[in-house]
Simulated scan of single mutants.
Amino acid sequence: MAGVMFSFYNFSSLIELNIGISNRLDENRSESFTILFCDFSGTSQSSIDTNLPSLLRTSDSIIHYEQYYFFVMPYTDRFGTGIVKRMIEEVFATPIPSAAVCYPSNGENAAELLESLHAEAKKIHHIDLDCLYSATERQP
């Protein structure tokens, strides 16, 4: 088991792809996928590289920006996201600041979902995810 890494600058496109897949396959529009943000400040990169891949499914996407990691998890609702978060904290043996948003309940497109994630991280942990705004800009 291991998540698949994507460039931070493809984050918005990756979200739009997951929205398209969800709309095609999930007629009841339940929580089709979740984006989980985790702040790994203070955690060594070698520890992250060693432990993180074993916690995610091959269908999960990993987006990395400095100490921040974002996971796009298809067919995972808030309950499932809570399980993943607990697994991460158990493996790293420390509380990991995190926030999560679900499609479509927290947004209908990538920009809305990223704005919701930014607001959630700021509200819960006072973490300013201004980097997300560059993820929604089109890259050449």
Rank of each mutant, 00 (worst) to 15 (best):
A2I: 12
S12M: 04
G80S: 12
I88L: 13
L25R: 11
R78F: 02
I21A: 01
G42P: 04
H126K: 10
N10E: 08
N106D: 15
A99G: 15
N109Q: 05
A135E: 01
Y75K: 08
T34L: 14
A2S: 14
I15F: 01
Y69T: 02
A111W: 08
S22M: 00
I35A: 06
R78S: 11
I19S: 07
S47V: 01
F79C: 04
F40H: 06
Q139T: 10
R29T: 01
R78Q: 03
D39K: 10
T58M: 09
T94D: 09
N51K: 12
R57W: 00
A93P: 00
S105V: 00
V91W: 04
N18F: 00
V4Y: 14
L129S: 05
I15Q: 03
Y75T: 04
A111R: 15
G80C: 05
E115R: 15
C131E: 10
Q67V: 11
Y103K: 01
S30R: 04
Y65A: 09
F71S: 10
F8T: 02
A99L: 07
V4R: 15
F79G: 09
N106E: 15
G20T: 03
A100V: 03
S98R: 02
R24V: 01
F6P: 02
L55T: 05
S13E: 07
S7R: 10
I63E: 02
F79W: 06
E31S: 07
G107D: 03
T136W: 03
M87K: 13
T50M: 14
S12G: 08
A110F: 01
A93Q: 15
E108W: 00
E115D: 15
L14E: 15
V84N: 07
V72K: 07
N28H: 00
L132K: 15
I127H: 14
F71T: 08
N109R: 07
I19G: 11
E27F: 09
Y69L: 09
F70E: 00
P53N: 04
S59E: 06
E66A: 06
L17A: 10
